[in-house]
C-alpha cells in the first residue's frame, strides 16, 4: 500500500471573523484522485491555498509530500504543480514561452525543460498552437495549457482548483480525460469542484465540504450508498403527520423533514415501495402535492447532509468567473 501524500490535521483558517475552514482533517493517498466537493465559499479554495503555501497555515498542521507547509514551504512548492482557479496566463506570451517561463522559474535544466515542453504540448494537443499567444486560445485550450504547465516539473501532486469552471460540456469531458491520463501516469490529483458530476466521474475519494467543515467522505459509491438503494422526495399538505406515517413503512430506513417536504431513504427497489408509501399517506387523508423518486446522486448526498442544494453562482450561467479574482 502506498502512503499518504497529503496529511491535514485540525486545519483552521479565518479571514477576520469569518472561519473559511473550520478544523478539518483528512489524508490523501499517493496515486489517487481526491476531490473536495462543495458549494462556492465552502472553504475549498482556502484549503488548496494553504496546502500550496499561498496562504499561511494559521492553525493545525498540513503536510504535503512529507513537508510541513509551515516549516518547509519551499520544499512543498518544489514538489507540487498547481492549476489555479482563475486564468493565470500571460496573454502576450506564446504557448511555448509559457511553458518555457515556468520551467525556468522552477530552475529546470535546459534539456529536461525542452524535452518536457514537447511531451506536454503533445499530451494536451496544442501542437498547432505552439507559437500562438495565449490570448488567442479558446477557454479550453487555455485550461489545457495551464494543466500542461502544472505538470512541467513532474510534480508528485497536481492541485486543480475548479478545473472546468466555465467550460462547455465537450471541453469538460476532454479535460477530464487529461486529468485521468495524468493520474494514470502516477501523479496524485487533488481537485476542488462544485460540480457533482465532475467529482463523481473523476474521483477515487471525495470529501464533501460545507461552511468550512467536512460533512461526509468516502468513495462516490459509498457516499451514495449511505442514502440506500432509492430515495423518494415527497411533498404533502401535512408533512408532520406524513413523516410519522412514512416511518411506519418497513422498507423506509430513514425519513426526515427537509425545508420543503420529506426525504425518504429506501432499503429496496423504490418502484415497488412507492405505491405503499403513497397509499398509507393518502389513507390518512393527507393530500400529496408532489412526489419524486430517484437513485441517490452526490447531489442528494449533499442535500441529505445540509438540507440545501449545491448552488453554483457564476458557473451556472456558463460565464467564466470575472478575472479580477481577489480570492
Amino acid at each position: 500500500m502506498k502512503g499518504n501524500i497529503i496529511e491535514v490535521e485540525g486545519l483552521t483558517h479565518s479571514f477576520g471573523d469569518f472561519k473559511a475552514v473550520d478544523d478539518i482533517s483528512f489524508t490523501v493517498e499517493e496515486g489517487e484522485i481526491f476531490s473536495f466537493l462543495g458549494p462556492n465559499g465552502a472553504g475549498k479554495s482556502t484549503t488548496i491555498n494553504v496546502l500550496t503555501t499561498q496562504l499561511a497555515c494559521q492553525k493545525g498542521t498540513a503536510k504535503v509530500c512529507g513537508f510541513d507547509v509551515k516549516k518547509n514551504p519551499h520544499e512543498v512548492k518544489k514538489s507540487i504543480g498547481i492549476v489555479f482557479q482563475d486564468e493565470v496566463l500571460d496573454r502576450d506570451l506564446t504557448v511555448k514561452e509559457t511553458l518555457e517561463f515556468h520551467g525556468r522559474i522552477y530552475s529546470m535544466p535546459r534539456d529536461q525543460r525542452l524535452a518536457r515542453e514537447k511531451e506536454l504540448i503533445d499530451l494536451v494537443e496544442l501542437g498547432e498552437k505552439v507559437n500562438e499567444r495565449t490570448k488567442n486560445l479558446s477557454g479550453g485550450m487555455k485550461r489545457r495549457l495551464e494543466i500542461a504547465r502544472g505538470l512541467m516539473t513532474r510534480p508528485r501532486v497536481l492541485f486543480l482548483d475548479e478545473p472546468t469552471i466555465g467550460l462547455d460540456p465537450q471541453t469538460r469531458l476532454r479535460i477530464w480525460d487529461y486529468i485521468k491520463g495524468v493520474n494514470e501516469e502516477g501523479t496524485t490529483i487533488f481537485l476542488t469542484t462544485h460540480y457533482m458530476d465532475e467529482a463523481d466521474r473523476l474521483s477515487d475519494r471525495i470529501e464533501i465540504i460545507d461552511h468550512g467543515k467536512i460533512i461526509a467522505s468516502g468513495t462516490a459509491d459509498s457516499l451514495k450508498n449511505t442514502l440506500g438503494k432509492d430515495m423518494i422526495y415527497l411533498e404533502t399538505k401535512d408533512d408532520e403527520r406524513a413523516l410519522v406515517i412514512a416511518k411506519g413503512v418497513p422498507e423506509v430506513t430513514q425519513a426526515k423533514r427537509m425545508p420543503k417536504g420529506l426525504e425518504l431513504i429506501l432499503s429496496s427497489d423504490g418502484s415497488r415501495v412507492m405505491p405503499s408509501v403513497l397509499r398509507s399517506v393518502q389513507d390518512e387523508g393527507i393530500e400529496i402535492l408532489s412526489v419524486k423518486m430517484k437513485k441517490p446522486s452526490l447531489d442528494d448526498v449533499f442535500v441529505h447532509y445540509t438540507g440545501r442544494e449545491i448552488r453554483d453562482g457564476p458557473a451556472e450561467t456558463g460565464l467564466p468567473k470575472p478575472r479580477m479574482g481577489r480570492r
Binding site: T53, Q54, K77, V88, L89, Y106
Partner: peptide, 10 residues
C-alpha cells in the same frame, strides 16, 4: 496575469 504563478513557485 501570472503573479500567482511566480509567487507559488519556489
Amino acid at each position: 496575469g501570472i503573479m500567482k504563478e511566480m509567487l507559488a513557485s519556489p
